[in-house]
């Protein structure tokens, strides 16, 4: 029987698209002085990949371009969502980024700490302990 590699290609595109997007959005939003610039760049690349997908005659190429393109379009929206996480203190702020410095001045909830960088303890954790736990972990 002949193997069909379309699913494996689509799976790799999905996993790598989500993984790279996950890392890229965090890193780029951390350093970028504006949100609109990375949002625009990711939108353009996303649309470009969809055009490539539409023009591919090969099913595997069409699938890979289509999926990578749509994850980049989603990432474009994620820059705004990531900024919201910074405001809430759910993701670490970068005081050297002027946009983040402004957020830190306006939102007392913003923090430079990454409160997720530890192992679960299996019970509710209040702010003071949450900070102790990540310090112990690092």
């Amino acid at each position: 029987m002949e193997l069909n590699f379309t699913g494996l290609t689509a799976a790799l595109a999905t996993f790598l698209g989500v993984w790279l997007g996950h890392v890229a959005v965090r890193k780029v939003e951390f350093v970028s002085p504006t949100i609109w610039l990375p949002t625009s760049i990711f939108t353009l690349f996303g649309i470009g990949l969809e055009i490539l997908s539409l023009r591919s005659t090969n099913a595997q190429l069409s699938a890979a371009f289509g999926i990578l393109g749509i994850t980049m379009l989603w990432d474009a929206l994620e820059f705004t969502r990531q900024q919201r996480r910074i405001k809430k203190g759910h993701a670490p702020a970068n005081p050297n980024n002027p946009r983040h410095a402004r957020i830190m001045a306006e939102h007392s909830s913003a923090t430079t700490l990454d409160l997720l960088k530890r192992d679960p303890v299996g019970r509710p954790v209040l702010q003071d302990e949450a900070i102790r736990l990540i310090k112990k972990h690092s």
Binding site: M1, L3, N4, F5, T6, G7, L8, T9, A10, A11, L12, T14, F15, V18, A59, A63, I67
Partner: peptide
């Protein structure tokens, strides 16, 4: 997904698995 002949079925199963 490797064993499904239909591209749609194979791709959807692959995406779901990933």
């Amino acid at each position: 997904s490797l064993f499904l002949a239909s591209n749609w079925a194979s791709a959807l199963l692959g995406v779901f698995g990933a």
